[in-house]
């Protein structure tokens, strides 16, 4: 994972696998830190599973024997002086928070978050994805639901729609002075 935007793309796949249909991605950025909150209404995890999520050799998948998504995010958050916290209860969904300290030289860059979000929204038409970016006192938000209402019978996963979303999210984030590097 080269940047924070790739981690977000990755972590949201966990929510989708947990059968969530509502996934909220909130990024709040100040001059010192970047906080990522991902909240879903999926199946959640019980205590025994929750204790093991940071173990790279634990996964619920049967297609492979390692699960690196959470351990890598944890490592990257901690190497910047931040942390990762996951709150979850079986049947209640999951809330993940990751804190990155921007002034640390080991902090990952944000990367092209607009591509991640556009691909998430258009690539997962069954889920409602809510994205909000707060930068100091300004913010931008968009959700799958709003887009679907406008598109009506045109599929969300049409390449033209995906490209439009990418451009729109990029321009709006630049407008609130989000830096991608």
């Amino acid at each position: 994972m080269k940047n924070i935007s790739e981690h977000i793309l990755d972590i949201v796949q966990n929510s989708i696998r947990a059968k969530a249909d509502n996934i909220e991605i909130l990024i709040s950025e100040t001059n010192q830190e970047i906080n990522i909150h991902i909240t879903d209404n999926g199946m959640g995890m019980d205590k025994t599973i929750l204790q093991k999520v940071n173990d790279p050799f634990f996964t619920t998948r049967t297609t492979r024997k390692v699960g690196l998504g959470i351990p890598l995010l944890n490592q990257h958050a901690e190497q910047s002086g931040g942390w990762l916290k996951i709150i979850s209860e079986k049947g209640e969904g999951t809330k993940l928070t990751a804190k990155f300290l921007k002034n640390n030289i080991d902090c990952l860059p944000m990367g092209d978050i607009y591509t991640s979000i556009a691909l998430l929204i258009s690539g997962n038409p069954e889920q409602n994805i809510i994205f909000r970016y707060k930068k100091n006192d300004k913010q931008y938000s968009i959700s799958s639901m709003e887009i679907k209402e406008i598109l009506e019978d045109i599929p969300l996963n049409n390449p033209k729609v995906a490209n439009f979303l990418k451009e729109m999210i990029k321009e709006n984030l630049e407008n609130i002075k989000v830096s991608f590097n």
Binding site: D10, G67, L68, T115, S116, S122
Partner: peptide, 19 residues
């Protein structure tokens, strides 16, 4: 688009194909 895919560049691939 799982951890393995993203780490190998699946995001760039998907973005390129969409384009």
């Amino acid at each position: 688009m799982a951890t393995c895919g993203i780490a190998s560049g699946a995001k760039e691939t998907m973005d390129y194909m969409v384009n």
